[in-house]
Nucleic acid binder design. Sequence first.
DNA 1: CGTCTTTGACCAGCGC
DNA 2: GCGCTGGTCAAAGACG
Length: 583
Amino acid sequence: MASGLSFDSDPTTILHTPNSFSDHHRHTTATWTIMDTNTNTTSSSPPPSTTIHFPLTLNSNNNHDHRTLNEMDFFANKKHEEDCTRLNDHPSVDDHVMELESNVNTGLHLVTGNTSSDQSIVEDGVSPNSEDKRAKNELALVQAELERMNMENKKLKEVLNQVTVNYNTLQSHLVTIMQEKERSGSITDDRKTIHDGGGGGEHAMVPLMDLGLSAPTAIETDENSQSSSEHDENSRSPPIYNNKMIVQRDESPEQGSQGVKVGSNKVPRLSASKTNTNSNTTSIDQATEATIRKARVSVRARSEAPMIADGCQWRKYGQKMAKGNPCPRAYYRCTMAAGCPVRKQVQRCAEDRTILITTYEGTHTHPLPPAAMAMASTTSSAARMLLSGSMPSSDGLINSNFLARTFLSCSSSMATISASAPFPTVSLDLTQSPNPMQQLQRGGGQFQPSFPSFQHQNFTGQNAALLPQIFGQALYNQSKFSGLQMSQDMEAGGSSQLGLSPLHINQGASPAALADTVTALTSDPNFSAALAAAISSVFGGGGTNANNGNVNATTSNNNGSAPTSNNNINGNNKVNSSSFQGN
DNA sequence: CGTCTTTGACCAGCGC
DNA sequence: GCGCTGGTCAAAGACG
């Protein structure tokens, strides 16, 4: 939804927008109705309900599938400060958001005054004096709250400005250093690298720094290579993927396009790390990467599709019957770039074959489309979370502990961590409720937007196939927000909380504190709004993929009787589905 | 003909 | 040491 407004005070109070508003996009004045979810009444009904008319005028010239996502993408990378402070980067609505700024807090902390009784006022203006007084009181409360939120937004703007400045400064500094190195002869060839990766002809992506303004990304040190052609345009300056500064390193040819058989039994295990490099640092890196490679994210989603659409291209390389499950397990590897180490396993749940269990392993070494970014963020965060406290931090402001919290924040009621599994695994169970917002309410309980096109959706078929994308996007957005909070804390010397949000993250928190943080995060309306935006961006589109058509959600049958066909939208994807035989 | 899927074989870890 | 299991490889076939 466009505003993503939420309520701090009353979890049962929601915003309702007319169907015409969401279905046919914006025009003229929008009417937001605060409604009591218990009675499900609207402004057309007698009280209780409070109708607020906002001078909202939104263009409807285009049908951006990413509209909602962009609007809720509060802290998108490299966003200009004015865009950030508006908390809205969609050009078609910027002006209108500016109109709203003075009246509506985009910080999503709108609080109604009728928190105790759910009583509301009659909007015809001829109510008795008592109701009139009460209405005035409520209005005063709302106005006060709005004023407070405006102050918060101003503070956020200041913080974000500072973070942006720091980011640009560091980036410039890095480029300068690299140029100096290049001049000094340490780099004699454009294709040569700064880091010695062991020699060879191909190139791997190495994270040099992550300034923490973006979600955790899929970039990692990896023994696999990118094709050189992919980096031709980046050969003279470090490519930046997902806000990570990347440098290239040479790589041994024996670890070429096929890469080390990471994840297989042929890859060095953690206990017996097979290091063939000269430096201890590299050995540590490889061990770390091997560890990350082992971290897994399992997503359980109710889906009739043979494979969830996560925005990536996959190639099936094996299928096995797993013990204890009559359904075969299919093995896929990412084919979006040569040598990408990411694997995933797809298997139907033995107990409930409508549940599709997708397990991701590894992180991507290539640029990702937005749709794939979401899942990559999720898996990358999970991988690093599982290494929390045990890996050298190369993530700058966002370290593994922070990522852990970020990850958990998305899913306190849905995510579990398995310490007993052969590999550290984070399981996201998206099957417990047909409506993830209900889960969100259970976890945070403070945000229940009204999505006319969403509320009655069941998470089956293609929609279910997009669940990880939703989840990942929520993580992605929240990570940005949380990253800002972290930066904010650091700006304040790590001791002074600015009190801008109920969300505060402290480095090195205890497990108990972590739990508190998770609770705080899940109750944070910004996170809720981000998740809601991600969901609405997918489900509000009436089945249209919110990823520029890069996702091929296969909707064919899953009984294994016939190979599935690729329902390519744009015909660009080589593979995005398989003939997974569910039974 | 190139690409992708299928599927049996192979390998390594692990438990007994 | 042996068997089980998970994971991957690679040849063969299918498909567009």
